[in-house]
Amino acid sequence: MHIELQQVLPVFIEPEKMAASEVWGKLVAIAPGEQVQVIAPSGSGKTSLVHFLYGLRKDYAGKVTYDKKDIRGFNPEDFARYRQQEISVVFQDMRLFTDQTVFDNINIKRVLAPYHPESRITEMANRLGIGSKLGKLSSTCSYGEQQRIAIIRSLMQPFSILLLDEPFSHLDEHNRQIAMTLIAEEAAARQAAIILADLKRIDYFPATRILNL
């Protein structure tokens, strides 16, 4: 899948921010397997960018295209197809089912388009240090644990683009590195591109391109 931003401008953006941005109002095409880090301070629209790319919001000018098709014209079924097979995401606000267990939160994504067997959930959870939490309700988990649940969930499906919106904000340095390694391995196995939006440059993210928002 090819994803492209064509002169995308959020409706709320201030003109001076736009001029300095390497994303807003520009043509940005993501090549397969590319690892892009988008850097921006708080409030510059990182989450908006991820939401625009994932098709959750439409309050922007310009175009976001999947395989040259403007996603404004997509219906919910079109989005469902892409989200099952081509594009995965880790939201900054995690978005977990609070009334479900950790395992169910992850498995609900896996059963939709199974890329991994069920046993991989336990493996990954153990690797990220939340193996003991699988049977617990996600609402009982800390933010750091919830972030790791969201990361594992995003890796359960096939994808060619992985969107990460400040995915390590609640993790310590050690856990960040473990999570990043897992993400990098999974992306490499799929030859997928990663777009990681964060406040500052993340050294252990092997970025092939850095864009200032």
Partner: peptide, 9 residues
């Protein structure tokens, strides 16, 4: 959230 995750309506 199910729709966001890719479930088809």
């Amino acid at each position: 959230l199910l729709l966001t995750l890719g479930y088809s309506p």
